[in-house]
Simulated assay, not measured.
Amino acid sequence: MIAIRFASLRHSNFSRLFAPKARCDCRILAKIEISTNTMTQHEKPAHVPPDFLPASLRNEARSISLSKGERLFNQGDTVEELFFIESGELKAIRLQLDGTQAIMVRAHAGDFFAESAMAVPRYTCHAEAVCPSRLLAFPVEAFRDALAQDGRFALAFSLTMASHARRQCSRQERLRLKRARERILHLLTCEGNANGVLEWRSPLVEMAEELGLEPETLYRTLRELEQEGTIERNRSRIRLLRPG
């Protein structure tokens, strides 16, 4: 789309300026600025379920879209489905006896979610979308049957769950660290990519919850790490430049 902006005009009478047979006088227009708007919105492509998922399960899946903050299920609901996250992010929240909430799991695009619910009759946590998210929901009984009947699928899924378990162990290890600085550096080391970059598209208050820190403590510590050259931040990215 071409946008033409008239910055200033010598004549205020537009009819005189654009009258028939009028000649363009450079003195009349002090400035004409022409700009082309070429911005396009790029959406992160959705993840697809892994190849090891049997066709029978794919055929039984249903799509779910969640808005930010929307609940997927509640603690105590009967287990009926488990999920694969195509895009977005979810967190599992457990209500404690004292009325507080604890984040048990954060899952991202490309992860299975609530797979441990196959072993219990009711969900043990709330599930909530951290941002707009799209999921595939699989009937839990069909998933159990496929695992029992397809050895290749069972092995591949078990290895995937082992990887998730390692991430959870790292998370528990991180929460046992006493200093905010140590928790942040542990997160960047364990969850960042090969270049030391952590993509964090949620508000920083969500990171504070994940790390078990007060938001003000997180903001202050990130600023200190940035000032000393240990990390650099660019919008949704935090890069570890050197070990703390």
Rank of each mutant, 00 (worst) to 15 (best):
243 P>F: 10
88 G>K: 04
12 S>K: 10
86 E>S: 11
160 T>V: 06
172 Q>L: 14
220 R>D: 02
66 L>K: 04
4 I>S: 05
127 A>L: 03
46 A>L: 07
238 I>C: 03
11 H>N: 15
129 A>P: 00
62 R>S: 15
206 E>P: 01
16 R>F: 11
229 G>I: 08
224 E>S: 13
7 A>R: 15
201 R>S: 11
110 G>T: 13
223 R>M: 09
216 E>I: 15
182 E>W: 03
142 A>W: 02
224 E>D: 14
160 T>G: 04
224 E>R: 07
195 N>G: 14
7 A>Y: 11
67 S>T: 04
68 K>F: 07
173 E>V: 14
177 L>H: 06
43 E>P: 00
203 P>M: 09
39 M>D: 08
139 P>N: 08
62 R>Y: 02
35 S>L: 12
186 H>I: 11
171 R>A: 03
184 I>P: 01
168 Q>F: 09
188 L>F: 01
178 K>D: 14
230 T>K: 01
208 A>H: 00
64 I>T: 03
147 L>P: 01
154 A>H: 00
95 L>V: 13
118 M>E: 10
168 Q>T: 08
33 E>M: 14
223 R>Q: 13
30 A>T: 15
144 R>F: 04
78 T>D: 11
142 A>I: 00
161 M>D: 02
34 I>L: 14
231 I>T: 06
65 S>F: 06
173 E>K: 08
158 S>V: 06
243 P>W: 10
113 F>M: 06
64 I>G: 02
107 A>M: 01
174 R>Q: 15
67 S>E: 10
189 T>S: 11
96 Q>C: 05
242 R>C: 12
58 R>V: 04
206 E>L: 07
102 A>T: 10
185 L>P: 03
33 E>L: 15
173 E>F: 09
46 A>R: 00
226 E>H: 04
149 Q>A: 10
215 P>R: 11
35 S>G: 08
198 L>P: 02
238 I>M: 07
237 R>Y: 10
130 V>Q: 08
56 S>P: 00
186 H>P: 02
82 L>Y: 03
107 A>V: 04
198 L>C: 02
184 I>R: 00
239 R>A: 08
14 F>R: 06
64 I>P: 01
37 N>V: 12
178 K>A: 15
67 S>M: 04
236 S>R: 14
50 P>R: 14
163 S>F: 10
147 L>M: 09
